[in-house]
Amino acid sequence: MKSLLLALAAACPLLALADDVLPGHLVGVWGTAESLYAGTTAQSELHLLANGTGIMAGSSPPAISIADPGKINPNMRAVVGFPVRATSDGDRLSLQPAMPPERNSPTPEEARFVCRYDGGGPTLTCSVKGRPEIVMKRRSDSVEEKTAEMIRDALIQVSAYAGKASVLRPQPAR
């Protein structure tokens, strides 16, 4: 009987991690356009799972030819993304980058994205301290399995790095 109670007690934290923490109307894919490569401006994208994990990504505007400034290559962009942990309070969504702390990194409050949900669009209007607002429309109510796997892998890597930060911290260039 003791071993059964011990097994149940050990499983409780794991079960809590599996619970959905986000309401269904916030889960899925959100973006400023149909992809990170659309249009002639920078784009943003957010992929959120029901358990509150996700990935935020952004792209630069497309590259402009030096030889011909009127020529734009829409497929040449800088694209960057990072894992996030999300919580919600009604129609307010808080996204915290899930990154190991670095010496010169912003504080959690400075890095937090705060988004307001509007069901009329539906849209998410997100802001982070010192940056213009980003308005993203819902593109899908679910995240592709390949992307969900990428989110899980990214969070595992961040956790592994944070656990061994003193060993894995890159050395400065000489």
Results as ranks from 00 to 15, higher is better:
Lys2Trp: 14
Leu4Pro: 04
Leu5Thr: 11
Leu5Gln: 13
Leu6Ser: 15
Leu6Asn: 15
Ala10Ile: 07
Cys12Ile: 09
Leu14Glu: 06
Ala16His: 10
Val21Glu: 06
Gly24Asn: 15
Val27Met: 06
Gly28Ala: 00
Val29Gln: 11
Gly31Gln: 11
Thr32Arg: 05
Ser35Lys: 04
Leu36Val: 03
Ala38Met: 08
Thr40Lys: 15
Thr40Gly: 12
Ala42Pro: 03
Ala42Leu: 05
Gln43Pro: 03
Ser44Gln: 13
Leu48Val: 07
Asn51Arg: 11
Asn51Phe: 07
Thr53Pro: 09
Ala57Pro: 06
Ser59Arg: 07
Ser59Asp: 02
Pro61Met: 04
Pro61His: 09
Ile66Thr: 15
Ala67Leu: 13
Ala67Thr: 09
Lys71Met: 11
Ile72Phe: 11
Asn73Phe: 12
Asn75Cys: 04
Asn75Gly: 08
Phe82Glu: 03
Pro83Thr: 02
Pro83Gly: 05
Ala86Gly: 10
Ser88His: 11
Asp89Cys: 03
Asp91Leu: 01
Leu95Arg: 04
Leu95Pro: 01
Leu95Cys: 01
Pro97His: 10
Met99Leu: 15
Pro101Trp: 08
Asn104Pro: 05
Pro106His: 01
Thr107Ser: 14
Pro108Ala: 03
Ala111Arg: 10
Phe113Cys: 01
Cys115Lys: 00
Cys115Ala: 02
Arg116Glu: 12
Tyr117Gln: 03
Pro122Cys: 00
Leu124Asp: 04
Leu124Asn: 07
Thr125Cys: 01
Val128Ser: 01
Val128Glu: 02
Arg131His: 12
Pro132Phe: 02
Pro132His: 04
Val135Pro: 01
Met136Ala: 03
Met136Asn: 02
Lys137Asn: 14
Lys137Trp: 08
Lys137Pro: 09
Ser142Met: 08
Val143Asp: 04
Thr147Gln: 05
Glu149Gly: 07
Glu149Asp: 11
Met150Pro: 07
Arg152Ile: 07
Leu155Phe: 07
Ser159Thr: 13
Ala160His: 14
Lys164Phe: 11
Lys164Tyr: 14
Ser166Tyr: 10
Leu168His: 09
Pro170Thr: 07
Gln171Ser: 14
Gln171Asp: 10
Ala173Glu: 14
Ala173Phe: 13
Arg174Ser: 14
Arg174Cys: 09
